[in-house]
Design a protein around this nucleic acid. Sequence first.
RNA 1: GGUCUCGUAGCUCAGCUGGAUAGAGCAACAGAUUUCUAAUCUGUGGGUCAGGGGUUCGAAUCCCUUCGAGAUCACCA
Length: 588
Amino acid sequence: MYLDNYLKQGIVDAVEELYGVKMTEESIKLEVTNPDFKGDYTFVCFPVVRFSKKKPEDTADEIGKYLKENIDQVDDFNVVKGFLNLEISHSYWLEYFKAHQFRNKLDNKGKVMVEYSSPNTNKPLHLGHIRNNLLGYGVARILEASGYDVVKSNLINDRGIHICKSMLAWKKFGNGETPESSNLKGDHLVGKYYVEFDKHYKAEIKDLMNAGMDETTAEKSAPLMLEAQEMLRKWESGDQATIDLWKMMNNWVYKGFDVTYKALGVSFDKFYYESQTYLLGKDLIEEGLSKGVFYKKPDNSVWIDLKSDGLDEKLVLRGDGTSVYITQDIGTAQLKYDEYKCDKSIYVVGNEQDYHFKVLFLILQKLGKSWADGLYHLSYGMVDLPSGKMKSREGTVVDADDLMDEMIEAAKVKTEELGKTDGMNEEEKNELYRMLGMGALKFFILKVDPQKRMLFNPEESIDLQGDTGPFVQYTHARIRSMFRAAKAEDINGDYDAVEARESEINLIKRLLDFESELLKAASAYSPAILIAYALNLAKAFNRLYNDVSILKEDNVHLRRFRLKLSGMTAETLKTTLDLIGIQCPERM
RNA sequence: GGUCUCGUAGCUCAGCUGGAUAGAGCAACAGAUUUCUAAUCUGUGGGUCAGGGGUUCGAAUCCCUUCGAGAUCACCA
């Protein structure tokens, strides 16, 4: 039983004993004491005042006395206003620490699918995708560590008008350029023609408008757009030449994506392709019609009325029987469930699609799908630039590959400046720069609460000092270095003789927090919680490190105790960062 | 116009389902290394938690309202 539960029970007993009122354990509010005050746990006494009929201070005092007498671990207490601060004995923390072992595997919680990345195959990945990928991968790892079986999936948007735009532009203006011929990464090559399409398309619109056409009509009747639409029709009817071109260009993109995914350190267990799923869902539309969930309009189009749920009417199938976006998402959700039978399914998708997912989940619930309750849209905010929103077509994006290269380069410059690469060969150095650069980038992105939009300023490089990835990595490397110097000293000493100081007890508490922080991060789907934990742990250690000497401590018990603490800190930092895809070098 | 987010220090962000004097980092300034890695640590300055009202013993947090920013309301995906 954890101490806080034990204390809560004690408070229940105290209130019953003192005031004759039986409270439930759940109604007791016990908090970790604010660091500015003395104590470990704080009981807020105001809610009990109505039972005690006494001043908050006196009530707190009485309960404090009761707890001190009846619970061994409560060493002492102090009262500030109505706040009862309980002081837990150092020996309790030491005992707990000595006996503590991290569990390798937590209780199984079921099966969950995390879908993330979901790129379009007409352009390379940018900073927004980085956030998506890091979030998705991080959440998947966190869920896995907290006891779920996880399936990481990626639904690739490999068809549609946007791909036809790139294809058409390449055909018209590409002169047979290939990734090999121009030595350009495949996804970047295809993206180049997407931009090219837009350039020519805009020029055509301008010409048409100069000729007197209004903008909307010009956009619709520009020859390039008509040609792209024709190409899409050809693709859908299986025209061999179009399919061949599509396959060739998509393969270029996939090769490029592989490189980017590898650099990001993310991976997938299952790929879905929209070219294979875009016709799904029509049978479910039929099912919904027969169940009366949907209805037909005179033009044969199928709709659902969600007004009673505070939403609008929504089209689910066109009059000509072809699908819309939500049709295939309905079908794909069913397909995923049929294949994997997951208890939960998480979609990592930007918050611009909040409405879409609200509608999608509602429809699946109305269709009576028992698994619909397990669907969750992990909605994250956009990454903004100081100049505003990123737009692929207009080239105002921070390219994923470029950004990673820049970060690694920045780490290299900094490391060389500090002169910390003595005795490392070229390969080891590059590996170190990569770990540090990527560590800084991932930490920077994941530090922010997923739901919030965040700002990235390309003019200011991402910090390598302060609350950063390298800060935590440094703390880890420093400990590892200490262990190299300690050789094989046995760290399992007898801690009973140890007179622990405040900074040591503090570090113990942080170390013991790991599991509860992990579970918190898992239930909130938030890697940011683990980042904050890693920072707190590293800071607690650094404070101790600056405060006392470890290897040079003469008292053998104390020395071993501190080494044990250090070792556990390094291990915990490494584990924590690993869950969000950040690696820790042995030295830096 | 309807709906949904968001607004905290000069900047980037924490602040968990209401709790004590609103916290970090960056930037600025002042310190710490004959001693285990100074990518570290200690300290100083910096706030009308967008404004106003309400609920409460207690509000950055919950409710209402005004202002400001963004998203969405496609037979695009």
